[in-house]
Computed example of a mutant assay.
Amino acid sequence: MSERVIDVHAHAVLPMAEGAAGAAGPELGASEDGTPFYRVGDYVLHGVKYAGSPFMDVDVRLAAMDAAGIDLQVLSPNPITYFNDLPVADAVAYARKHNDALTELVGKHPGRLLATAQLPVQDVDAMIAEAGRAVRDLGMTGLYIDTDPAGRTLDDPELDRFYEAVVDLDVPLFVHPSPLGSTGPADDVRLRRFDLDLMLGFAYDETLAVAALVFGGVMERHPGLDVCLSHGGGAAAFLSGRFARAVAKRAWVSQALRDNGFDHYYRRIWFDTHVHDVQSLQLLVDHAGSERLVFGTNFAGWDSGGDDHPAGALADTLTANATRLLRL
């Protein structure tokens, strides 16, 4: 195992953020039978106990990190509280309160915790302004957005100004999907069975994100952008040969993409290694390379891999990569 383990994939639920989005919440409570719930707008998540867990109790988190052998952890917004559909002013107010609270939390534990920022993605100017405040004024380590922020694909030209700002701020941009659709649960009702919104749904959105970043020219237009996708980028490693064939054959491919090839841009994206399987991890290494892979756990989540550190040379590589990605 590496001498230092850095976990880039860990979400926080902040007591100080409760009610910060007004009527939309978020609200933590319990039903009459004692079952805990967490409400975001009209959506209610039942049965997940945030209170007293590592998500909300920093002492419990640090003890669990020690038990798992994690030295440093990057905390990020809860994916069900992106609030992509709030009015801009409300989204700005929520992001500011969230980022202030998360900064205060990690500031009490230097060397153990870092923070990434919630952004009001409804408005690009507001998004850029809060990104600048979060990094320059609060000292946050990076920025966090959905795979389709406010309904935009990641290659939407409106986001180019934001990507330019991210490069100027010299911080990583983390991209993680939300399990919520436009009306709360996943829009595709088939994903509401067997927790498929969290498994197939996330992989679907992450694969679409890879396609938008590569096919849509984001990596070409912004060569200095460091963007990190969750869960190994979904199914992109498995589909990379098919994606490469499309680049060679299809008429919509840009000249730069055709000249450089799919792998040239695909291997410029960062991915966390939260894929649960040695063979899946090896597939990711084989296709995406190891130079931009970082260790991630979804710490304390249902699928947490907090005690599942890659062994051998890859462990040292992941630590070195995270050190570069996070500008440590």
Rank of each mutant, 00 (worst) to 15 (best):
D307K: 14
V5Q: 02
A186C: 08
F262M: 08
T116H: 05
F83G: 03
L196T: 10
D168I: 07
L200C: 03
G142W: 07
L225Y: 00
F238S: 07
V218N: 07
T317N: 02
A212H: 14
L200R: 03
G289I: 07
H46L: 14
D123Y: 14
P120E: 07
A20L: 06
D263M: 09
D123E: 15
T35L: 11
L318V: 01
L208V: 09
T116S: 05
G217K: 04
D308V: 09
S304P: 06
L225Q: 05
Y265L: 01
T147W: 01
D308F: 11
F37M: 07
T141S: 13
L86P: 02
T297W: 10
A63P: 03
P120F: 08
V74D: 02
I6M: 09
L159N: 05
G69D: 08
V175I: 15
L72E: 13
F271W: 04
D42S: 11
P26S: 13
L257W: 03
A24Q: 07
G312F: 12
H98P: 14
R161Q: 08
T153F: 09
D160I: 00
H46K: 15
L138D: 13
T207L: 01
A246V: 14
V124F: 10
V247L: 13
F243Q: 14
D66F: 10
A126V: 12
A63E: 09
L257F: 04
A150I: 07
V247E: 06
V214D: 03
Y94W: 13
P172T: 09
G312H: 13
L314T: 10
D42F: 10
D155V: 05
L45R: 11
P54C: 08
E130I: 09
R136S: 12
D160L: 08
Y50M: 09
D100K: 13
L119T: 12
V13D: 11
D197W: 10
D205C: 14
S290V: 12
A24E: 06
R242V: 08
A93K: 15
L284V: 04
A320Y: 12
L169R: 06
G25C: 01
H109K: 14
E291T: 15
V218D: 05
E104I: 13
A248G: 12
V60E: 07
P223K: 04
D156W: 09
V124I: 15
G234P: 02
S31I: 09
V8P: 02
A126I: 13
G184S: 05
D307V: 14
P15W: 00
A165V: 03
D272F: 01
M127V: 06
I6F: 10
H287A: 11
N99V: 05
D42M: 10
R245M: 12
L257R: 01
Q122I: 06
S254M: 04
A320P: 10
T147I: 04
F37C: 03
Y265N: 00
N99C: 06
R61E: 06
A288F: 00
A126M: 15
D71R: 04
S2Y: 00
H46Y: 09
P185W: 12
L284Q: 01
A24G: 03
D197A: 11
N321F: 04
P36L: 07
I145V: 15
R268D: 03
L180G: 00
A23E: 11
A129P: 03
A134S: 12
F202A: 02
V106S: 06
D263K: 03
G234D: 02
A12C: 11
L229V: 02
V275M: 07
R133Q: 10
